[in-house]
Simulated assay, not measured.
Amino acid sequence: MRQTLLKGLWISGALLFFASGCGVLPARLVLGFTAGDPATAQVTSCMRDSNSKVTSKACSGTWRTDDGEQGSGHISGATPDDNGREVEIRTGPFGTYIEPITANWQLYPAIPALIWIPYALWRHRRSKRLRRSARSTDSGPQAQTPSTSA
């Protein structure tokens, strides 16, 4: 019963971790920066969106990849200083990025957890297997010792 509960907690924790976005966003960014196609973009407009506590910027533009594909839309990481300029970007499956891979350093503490969760699951299963084999060895047939009778 206890082991079933532990297994359920591990699975629930892993699903919660990924569902919360803690593991998805860093993996998404790394994929976009490493597997994305290089392109040249023209930033056409930037607007500042001031909320009560947060100021964000939304820039858009058009781009062309080295293969000749064209696109337009939001460009992550572009600033109002880039408005009207040509900039180098990466286009990936999750959008376009102007920033270098080091720009979102706040997200990278989640990466060790992406490694730790599978390792912890492996260790848990391994220790469970070792305990089971130790129990089966202990409960095996006992060696009979010869008795001496006079």
Rank of each mutant, 00 (worst) to 15 (best):
T137D: 02
A14P: 03
R85H: 10
G84T: 04
L25I: 12
G92M: 04
Q42K: 14
T4F: 14
A39H: 01
G23S: 13
A41K: 07
A41C: 11
N83C: 06
Q144E: 07
L5G: 08
N51Y: 15
S139N: 12
R48C: 01
T148K: 10
T34K: 11
R85K: 12
A103N: 03
A113R: 02
K7C: 11
A39F: 08
T137C: 02
Q142Y: 11
S52F: 14
R48H: 02
W122V: 06
W122Q: 02
I101V: 09
T40E: 11
N83S: 09
W122K: 12
I117F: 02
D37E: 13
P80V: 05
T44H: 08
T4P: 03
S60K: 10
C46T: 05
T4G: 14
S12H: 09
P146G: 12
W63T: 08
Q142V: 07
F17E: 06
P93F: 11
A150Y: 05
L16M: 09
L114T: 09
T62Y: 07
F33V: 04
P118Q: 07
L107D: 02
G71V: 07
V24C: 06
T79K: 12
T44W: 00
P118W: 05
E99I: 06
T55S: 13
R123N: 14
M1N: 11
G36F: 04
A19V: 00
P26M: 01
V54H: 15
G95E: 10
K53P: 00
T40P: 02
S20L: 13
I117R: 02
G32A: 08
L114D: 04
F17R: 03
H74R: 15
Q142M: 10
T148P: 07
A120M: 03
